[in-house]
Design a protein around this nucleic acid. Sequence first.
DNA 1: CGGTATCCCATGCGATACTG
DNA 2: CAGTATCGCATGGGATACCG
Lengths: 125, 125
Amino acid sequence: MTSRPADPAAEVLTGDCPAREVLDHITSRWGVLVLVALKDGPLRFHQLRDGVGGISEKMLSQTLRVLRRDGLLDRSVEPTTPPSVSYTLTPLGREGVLPLCGLIEWIARRADDVLAAQAHHDATR
Amino acid sequence: MTSRPADPAAEVLTGDCPAREVLDHITSRWGVLVLVALKDGPLRFHQLRDGVGGISEKMLSQTLRVLRRDGLLDRSVEPTTPPSVSYTLTPLGREGVLPLCGLIEWIARRADDVLAAQAHHDATR
DNA sequence: CGGTATCCCATGCGATACTG
DNA sequence: CAGTATCGCATGGGATACCG
């Protein structure tokens, strides 16, 4: 009996474990985008709002709170007037964002193939 | 001017492009799980339903239709009685599933750290 | 076996307005 | 600037029943 099973996907797939919640947080509509936006360094609230196209302030704030609770990012306040707040990936977050960057990069590279597949599918039927 | 920008994430982040739709399909609640479940080879409908914990037949069927339209997986019917239907990753799908496996693997490895961060966060405030 | 159709509720999420 | 509060709708998604 091994303490680490050969296939780490098995546990996540088969149901109700904490890992599923983490997956849902990260792959939530705005989670991936916010995390990837932060990959190159800290950003302030309004930079994130402007950088992640289409996100509302409400969803940005909500997403940031969830990801912060999960230990994936940090919030820091500079005591200027008015205070400026910035968000940074934690070490944990920097690790987790790597596969996400891979995903985004793949999508950017292959989006045209997917579009072609969609067109073909819609035309064929 | 380069035909390929340095940062492929930029386009996806900044808004309304086809890539965003692809991202939403893949990172939909069940999309990741279905794709990863198929990483080791074809599975039949009921194998997927049983393998992906918590998914309903409706959502499985719906997710499969979307991913099929995107050209990420194929459906094939063996003309037995009753017919047996199985789903396979296409070459495109096999490529795209790689970062997803990376993500799942990372989550499985780090879930405990996230749980600890949550506990700490809830306790601190 | 491998789905689709219908019903219905929970929540995700945007819009707007307001606050420290 | 960096949010929170409230409202309201659209969509996601489960339960159940039915079909080829």
